[in-house]
Simulated assay, not measured.
Amino acid sequence: MSKREERRGERRATILETAGACFLEHGYAGTTMSAVAARLGGSKGTLWSYFSSKEELFAACIEEKTEIFRAELVQVLNPGAPLRPAIEGFCRRFMAKIREPQSVALYQLLCGEGTRAGEASRIFYERGPGVVQALLVAFLSGHEAGGRLSGGTPLEMAQVLISLCTGISHQRALLGLTCPQGATQPPPPEKIADLFFRLYAVNEAEVKRVA
């Protein structure tokens, strides 16, 4: 990488960090390219030389924030991975990700803006939850074809597993509520995997053998 390319990469990273902070502070509808440029201390033209629109800038922020997580899921949901460890690994990483303060803040932001940020919601879904679901569906499809899972389509299985991972504790987090003393904490990944396999495993003995 040349010095020029290196400087451009560093500048792009700075733009994404600054824009991400603006989106979280002022919302998608309340953030403008001019405001981001002003916080950066440069001209609007410089910002536009990297991103042609606010939509493109927001999409790049989501891509940057989820890049490592997507790579982890690709590794965990490798088509050749044993079934049970992969399901537990997915649950563990997914539950940790959606409970990160920044993830909760982004969900709250988009839910709060409602229809005013319809484009932002679409961008977020396509590059966040949509990617997660697609990776999970592809993984489950292989095991369904291999005769280890049945009782629903891969899409239905993926949606059920994601729902089990989110649960009531995630709803409380989105509302800014902490779990009261004595309240039920999120079930461990192993427990969620047990529930999933009770619904869809062809037989538990086969799942344990593969794992």
Rank of each mutant, 00 (worst) to 15 (best):
R148K: 15
T184Q: 09
V137L: 08
C91H: 08
Q159A: 14
R99D: 10
L149P: 03
S53G: 10
F197D: 06
R172P: 01
E10A: 13
T46W: 00
G182S: 08
E25C: 05
L77F: 02
A71L: 12
S49N: 14
G114M: 05
E119Y: 06
P101S: 07
A71Q: 13
R122C: 13
V131P: 02
I98K: 00
G146M: 08
E63V: 04
Y28F: 14
C22F: 02
T184N: 04
K208L: 14
I62K: 02
A138G: 10
C165L: 08
R4E: 12
Y125G: 12
S141K: 06
R39M: 04
R12Q: 09
R148E: 12
Q75L: 02
K3Y: 11
A201R: 08
I168H: 12
A158Y: 06
L161R: 07
R93N: 09
L195W: 09
L73Q: 05
F139T: 07
T178C: 10
A37V: 03
N78D: 15
T115H: 01
T115W: 10
G41N: 11
E204N: 13
A21T: 09
L177A: 09
H143S: 03
A105H: 07
V137K: 07
I192P: 01
V137N: 04
G89T: 07
A117V: 05
T178M: 06
A37K: 08
L106Y: 03
E64A: 14
G41V: 05
S150Q: 10
R70N: 08
E206K: 12
F139W: 09
W48H: 15
R12S: 00
S2C: 07
V132R: 03
E56T: 14
S49D: 11
H170Y: 15
E17M: 03
I123P: 01
A37T: 02
V76L: 10
V74S: 10
T31N: 06
E6A: 09
K97N: 11
A19L: 01
E100C: 03
A13Y: 04
Y50T: 03
Q171V: 15
R7Q: 14
Q75H: 10
L73T: 02
P79D: 01
L73Y: 02
G41E: 05
S53I: 10
C111R: 15
T184Y: 00
Q181R: 11
